Amino acid sequence: MPFPNLLKALIALALSMFITGCVTQQPYDYSAFKESSPASILVLPPINKSPDVKASYSVYSHITLPLSEAGYYVLPVAVVDETFKQNGLMNADEIREVSPQKLHEIFAADTVLYIDITEYGSSYMIISSEVAVAATATLVDLRSGKELWKGVARASTAEQQQNSGGGLAGILITALVNQVVNTLSDRGHEIAGIASNRLLSSNPVNGILPGPRARPTTPR
């Protein structure tokens, strides 16, 4: 692609991202969540839709902290994972097929959290390199089968990267160096922690509601 056309395409992409980012989020309907008033959460192993095989357990290891800080009792994920394996369910896709009623019978939790990893790992593009993790989460009441909440979050090393100058050659070299560093240091696990915290921390913008063990805050 000729450079003028490439430049136009990049400008159009930047404008599109800016406009999309300025769209006001619609308030989430929390009526079912408030009616359920859950206290405990069973987190199933995430389904990995990315090409990186490390993604599922990397994200899974970060889930408990933000949910606990939000005020919920989270069933120990290692115990949950081992329970499924002992019953012949070896991967996340098989586990996802278990009905809410059966999950409630086995674990006696109020809710179950389904997580899908849509992006994980490093990518090298023409003028940039980043490690990104993106995931969606759905909270379902195990007693009624109702969906209570759904969220999405993404985190990336590109958020902290700054162009240090040096022209196009400098940008390309920086992107290549970042790609090597990101691959060797497996920064995906670090970024997974940031994405998980954004996804599952209690927050006033369409986030998960505070649980019964949450620190007192000003009511929404």
Rank of each mutant, 00 (worst) to 15 (best):
Y57N: 13
T138R: 12
S50M: 06
V59I: 15
V140C: 06
P38T: 07
V140D: 10
A169K: 09
F33M: 13
G188D: 05
A169G: 01
H62R: 14
T217V: 10
A214E: 03
P100V: 02
T111F: 08
N163K: 00
I126R: 10
V80N: 05
I208Y: 06
I171L: 10
Q179M: 15
D116L: 13
V181W: 06
E97K: 15
S99T: 14
P210R: 05
Q179E: 15
G167F: 14
M125V: 02
L13M: 00
I194P: 00
V43L: 02
P210E: 11
F107N: 12
R220F: 14
T157C: 12
V180I: 15
L44I: 05
E119S: 05
Y57A: 05
N163V: 07
F107A: 11
G211M: 09
G21I: 04
A108R: 14
A108L: 13
A78C: 09
S37N: 15
A137V: 04
N178D: 14
S68Y: 00
L209E: 11
S164T: 13
K150N: 04
G188C: 04
V180A: 13
S31L: 04
A155K: 01
L13E: 12
L6K: 11
A32R: 11
V53A: 12
I173P: 03
I106E: 06
R154Y: 02
H62C: 12
Q162E: 15
G145E: 02
A14V: 12
M17V: 01
L10T: 02
E190N: 07
S129P: 11
D52R: 01
E82S: 04
V59A: 08
I208T: 04
S123W: 01
V43H: 02
V181E: 15
P51M: 03
G145D: 07
E147A: 03
A134K: 00
I191H: 01
S56N: 09
A132C: 12
A158S: 06
L113S: 08
Y73H: 07
Q26F: 09
Q101F: 04
L75D: 15
S56A: 14
V74R: 01
P219Y: 13
I171F: 01
S40L: 06
V205G: 07
Y73E: 15
F107S: 10
L7W: 03
T24H: 02
N5T: 05
S37W: 00
N5H: 00
R220A: 15
P216I: 08
D52K: 02
N48D: 12
V180K: 12
E82C: 03
L209C: 02
F18W: 07
Y60T: 00
A108H: 09
N87S: 04
L7C: 00
K49W: 08
